[in-house]
């Protein structure tokens, strides 16, 4: 009983329940949903598809988690993705040899450099000028797609380049390259934040920037760094997205991904008030959102109702996680078990 109670109190309990329910519902509808087969030496199947499709959102949500942990928010990620695709593909398209690995590498480095500048700009507005994050990043969110269109000349730039296509469509050791890229970045960030003091420092800045600065934490540098990291992760997500369609579509690349990313972070139990973050939670949040989108078609919900269904799942998960409902659930449990040994949170 107490074991179960503790389990339901875990902040990832409801998101994981949502994930399991979605997977179960999909499997009931299509029995081979969870089946993974080997075809041409690659793994195939819906679970692999979920992993591959999750990679873009995971990269964006990874940076977003760090930013939100410092009590910030980054609305510019979608626009940064568009700029990354525009810069890189324009350069590949204009080069004499689009298929060469060196061309692709140089173009991607240029894209990363441009996004680095945007990250530095966002970080400067927030960390140095002290502008509210939501409004500081709104600047690039508004102007960014305009800049991306300026770079591509208002057209959808398309390229044919085998090395660049590998990013999103390739397989390595039987697994999709995109998922591997996202997985490696996730592991690195998890190791660096949780095996060193960096994670705690980020959280301390999120709890109270002034106090942490007085305690000797370089609050300004840390805030600046998370915005730069967020832009860089968004840039890599932009590579994956543009590689997926082999085109730089400035209007639609990463459209509304900032909302999905923030949602994934919040579903994962990271509070928008900052000071606490969970990368595992973000991973679960990302999987919930991607599975939701994929299973909707499998379950047979009409395409028109996708957004409605998504809204309902989000509202239910958020309500279940809200302090009021949690409190009520806990109170009811205490009534059921007459020995109140729990320490009130």
């Amino acid at each position: 009983m107490t074991g179960l109670a503790q389990l339901t109190r875990h902040r990832l309990f409801w998101p994981i329940v949502a994930l399991v329910v979605l997977l179960l519902a999909s499997t009931l509808k299509s029995h081979s949903f969870l089946e993974v087969t080997v075809r041409d030496g690659h793994l195939y199947g819906a679970p692999i598809d979920i992993l591959r499709r999750s990679s873009i959102l995971l990269l964006v949500a990874l940076g977003m988690t760090l930013v939100i942990a410092t009590r910030g928010i980054d609305l510019s990620v979608g626009a940064v993705m568009a700029i990354a695709g525009a810069v890189t593909l324009t350069q590949i398209a204009s080069s004499p040899d689009p298929g060469a690995v060196s061309t692709v590498a140089v173009a991607m480095l240029t894209g990363l450099a441009v996004c680095l500048v945007i990250g530095v700009f966002n970080g400067f507005l927030v960390a140095v000028l002290g502008i509210q994050p939501i409004i500081a990043t709104l600047v690039i969110m508004t102007a960014g797609r305009g800049i991306a269109m300026l770079i591509t000349g208002g057209q959808i730039t398309t390229v044919t380049s085998a090395p660049y296509k590998t990013l999103a469509s390739g397989f390595w050791l039987g697994l999709p390259v995109a998922a591997l890229i996202a997985g490696v970045f996730f592991a690195v960030v998890a190791l660096v934040t949780r095996r060193t003091a960096l994670g705690v420092l980020i959280e301390s800045v999120g709890i109270n920037p002034t106090a942490s600065r007085l305690a000797g934490v370089r609050a300004r540098t840390i805030i600046w760094t998370v915005y730069v990291l967020c832009a860089l992760f968004a840039c890599i997500a932009g590579f994956l997205q543009s590689s997926n369609i082999m085109a730089a579509d400035s209007n639609n690349a990463g459209l509304f991904i900032e909302l999905d990313a923030i949602l994934a972070v919040v579903i994962g139990g990271t509070s928008l008030a900052g000071g606490k973050f969970s990368l595992t939670g973000t991973l679960v949040g990302v999987l919930v959102i991607t599975t939701l989108t994929l299973s909707i078609t499998v379950i047979g919900i009409p395409v028109n109702a996708v957004s409605l269904f998504k809204a309902l799942v989000v509202i239910v998960v958020c309500l279940l996680q809200s302090p009021v409902v949690q409190h009520k659930l806990r109170a009811r449990r205490r009534q059921a078990a007459p020995v109140p040994v729990e320490v009130p949170a």
Partner: peptide
Amino acid sequence: HVFEIQPFIATLAAMFLARGLCYV
């Protein structure tokens, strides 16, 4: 107010909801 969900998230959910109703 009642469920103490941040305005950003609550209105985001409402945005999805309203858009979803539109499509229906």
